[in-house]
Nucleic acid binder design. Structure first.
Length: 452
RNA sequence: GUGGCUGUAGCUCAACUGGUUAGAGCACCGGUCUGUGGCACCGGGGGUUGGGGGUUCAAGUCCCCUCAGUCACCCCA
């Protein structure tokens, strides 16, 4: 549509904003339960913050430009470099382990597709300063608990976990080394999405024997862990990595999330900086892109900020997650806030006038109620029937009006008019903010909100 | 960046093999209903059929370009 948002960018109308808020509420709530604290950084960063880590080829996928001070800058495509910088700058002063999270809006100049836009919000959760696999388990538990918070069960979303150290040890044991390692990673990453014949061709092209290639391909199969245990269990490197990974799985079970976790050594993660346990979250039907991905990146802080601290984290975008929630019917309750009370012109409208209505509105708001009304004298004086309609369409719990005999009446708007709950009080008591009257009205509204 | 598919009102869709001023439902706005409700009835605003060009007496319909969406690739968050 002409005149709409830029391609890959979204307008958030109230309904969509409510969906976004629903997701962000869940993010913050779970992060809070896990005792992570929120931080943020600039949405615009020096270009080289990203080129240093990822190489110049990433520039083609960045929103970048030269600012008026001749600085090369870019809209942040990810949060990790900013996070690494912030942590590194105060590394000595921060209490370890650091548990921080952020909800940045990220940008990437790429062709938009379903679940993949040029802009999205992403929950970033990171832990710094703890090398134990307990931290890895804690991290994945956060991600899985976010799913639960949003109503997604282990039948909806699966976590796939792998370990680069284990994979590296096994590859070495198989006899894969040097450039062939990268090829093996690439092939494993594409298992299921690329014909096996192509995979074998690539492995062979990297100088690997047919037996080695077959062994690599078996790593992507279910039960690969047991296979590794029996074939390479005696290898010291493999044995050590297996112990860590087994402990990790045991921690996940103890944290109560094992039912959502599958071991899948073909999870490689595109980002090169991962060094240990990595994971991704997918919808169980496999219809969408990854919901979440992360893992351990023990060398990144050293490479970026010169501080040698172990670290791990994940990113979870709002786009794919939102698609999944909509597909599963879990987004229907996420609606814009509605007013509690809607002031209409009742029998007392003629005598109270607009001034009286506004005074009532003002008092109710001072008392903390969310209050809406017609915004015009004409509407205030029009037929009660159509005013009730307006109040209902606004989603108000109750309509409230002057009776004209010194009293104010509030009437519930749910159900039939005949058995609508009614609240009545003295107008002057309400307008003078009398505590007993206000409490009674609050209780009335509270009852209505629970009934709906 | 490459290729396939799609594009009619805010939304869901109509419009026979090209043929009068492109329609409907929902939504929105106004009115009637002389006073307690999601109703009903009446009326209204809204589309240069994504945009541009071409073929034709005539294009929403056919052709080309372009833009956007979508899917696959690429790449990844």
């Amino acid at each position: 549509m002409a005149g709409g948002a830029l391609p890959g960018f979204r307008d958030f109308y109230p309904d969509e904003f409510a969906h976004r808020a629903h997701i962000m509420r869940a993010w913050r709530e779970v992060a809070r339960r896990y005792a992570f604290v929120e931080y943020d950084g600039p949405p615009l960063e020096p270009l080289d913050l990203y080129t240093k880590k990822s190489g110049d080829e990433i520039v083609g996928q960045l929103y970048h430009f030269v600012d008026k001070g001749d600085r090369e800058v870019a809209l942040r495509p990810e949060m990790t470099p900013t996070f690494a910088r912030m942590v590194a700058a105060r590394a000595n002063a921060l209490r370890k382990p650091v548990r921080w999270f952020a909800i940045p809006q990220l940008f990437r100049y790429e062709r938009a597709q379903r679940g993949r836009l040029r802009e999205h919000f992403q929950l970033n959760v990171d832990i710094v300063g703890e090398a134990s696999e307990v931290a890895d388990a804690e991290l994945l538990a956060v991600a899985i608990d976010v799913m639960r918070e949003l109503g997604l069960t282990s039948a909806d979303v699966r976590a796939r976990v792998s370990d680069r150290r284990l994979l590296n040890a096994v590859l070495t044991a198989i006899g894969v080394s040097g450039a062939a390692t990268g090829v093996a990673y690439g092939v494993l990453d594409k298992v299921g999405r690329q014909p096996d014949a192509v995979a074998f061709e690539k492995l062979s092209g990297a100088g690997l024997s047919a037996e080695s290639s077959a062994a690599i391909m078996r790593l992507a199969q279910p039960g690969a862990l047991d296979l590794i245990r029996s074939v390479h269990g005696a290898n010291a490197e493999v044995k050590s990595a297996l112990q860590t990974f087994d402990a990790y799985l045991a921690h996940l079970a103890a944290l109560g999330v094992a039912d959502s976790v599958d071991v899948d050594l073909s999870i490689v993660r595109g980002l090169a900086y991962y060094t240990g346990i990595v994971f991704e979250l997918f919808d169980a039907k496999g219809e969408l892109r990854a919901i979440c991905g992360g893992g351990r990146y023990d060398n990144l802080l050293k490479d970026l900020g010169g501080v040698d601290l172990p670290a791990l984290g994940f990113g979870m975008g709002d786009v794919v997650l939102g698609e999944l929630l909509k597909d599963r019917g879990l987004m229907t309750r996420a609606t814009p806030d509605r007013p509690a009370l809607f002031v209409i012109g009742g029998p007392g409208a003629a005598t109270s006038g607009m001034a009286g209505a506004l005074q009532l509105v003002s008092v109710l708001r001072a008392a903390g109620f969310a209050v809406d009304y017609g915004l015009s004298e004409k509407k205030y004086q029009t037929l009660p029937r159509s005013q009730y309609e307006s109040a209902q369409k606004a989603g108000a719990l109750a309509a409230i009006y002057f009776e004209g005999d010194g009293r104010v009446t509030a009437k519930g708007l749910i159900g039939k008019p005949a058995d609508a709950p009614t609240f009545a009080c003295d107008a002057s008591a309400l307008l003078s903010l009398e505590p007993v009257t206000l409490d009674a009205l609050r209780a009335f509204v509270q009852r209505l909100s629970q009934g709906s």
